[in-house]
Amino acid sequence: MAVFAVYPLLQLAWMSVHDVTQATLNQGGWDFVAWDNFLRGFTAGESPAAIVRTLVVVCIVTVAGMLLGLAVAIALRTKGWWSAALLALMVFVWALPPVVNGSVWKFLLAESGLVNTLLGFIGISPVPFLYDPQWALISVASVAAFAVIPFNALVFRAALMAIPPEIFEAAAVDGATRFQEIRHIMLPAVRGTTLVLFVLTVVYGFRSFDFIYVMTFGGPGTATATLPFLGYLQAFNRYDYGLGSATSFLAVVGVLVLAGVYARTIGKEERS
């Protein structure tokens, strides 16, 4: 496992400080260029722009994924066939390949797709969801959030189900409203889960590329090329493997930082 998982990362670091192109990929003896690949990424303005886009995606995915995931978990506490069916539906959508979800949303968000048709009924002119640089970034991030909400809802649901029913009974006796139940019973109960899930969702948003690949392929221009996707584009579309490795290496460093935060969060949770 170490050979196929750790060694590629070392290789990536090695490639990021060398000049590697299509012609030289399969030969040894690459020219050592030190920080040149990283500098090229920054001076051309591609890396900083990609970092900003990555942060936008992470924010949208995390805020929507956490809040809506919790909202679903709370709404699904009610018994009955509807809650059970909705949960099953959402887990099924989560289990679908990202290419399928991405294709469907590319279709729904098309210029004359379902979403724009519905907006037309209430008198809103078509929105260029995938053709406008800003809208495109919001769109791919929203679909990534759409795909992670079911998972987050499941995790929150498990935490809510661990609350002893007596607590709710006691609250009902005291005449607590639903809002008070959420505020004073459910939110404190999911606190530990929230911390860990928060980091997981940030990581998911950070490394997410499937929907970008399927819906926009980084476009229009490079408007939806987040850091991990930009590295892929540079390597496999422009055949500049050195530059792509440097960009991807930045993404790896970002993940290492997040992993550190995650390990600390888990450590704290297990101690408390």
Binding site: P8, L12, F229, F236
Partner: peptide
């Protein structure tokens, strides 16, 4: 465990570049 957590979080788009080269070899 820490190593596994880190590996599990790695962006796939970053791993594909070095793997492509090695698989070529």
């Amino acid at each position: 465990l820490v190593a596994l957590i880190v590996l599990q979080m790695m962006p796939q788009t970053a791993l594909v570049i070095p793997l492509f080269r090695h698989f070529g070899q």
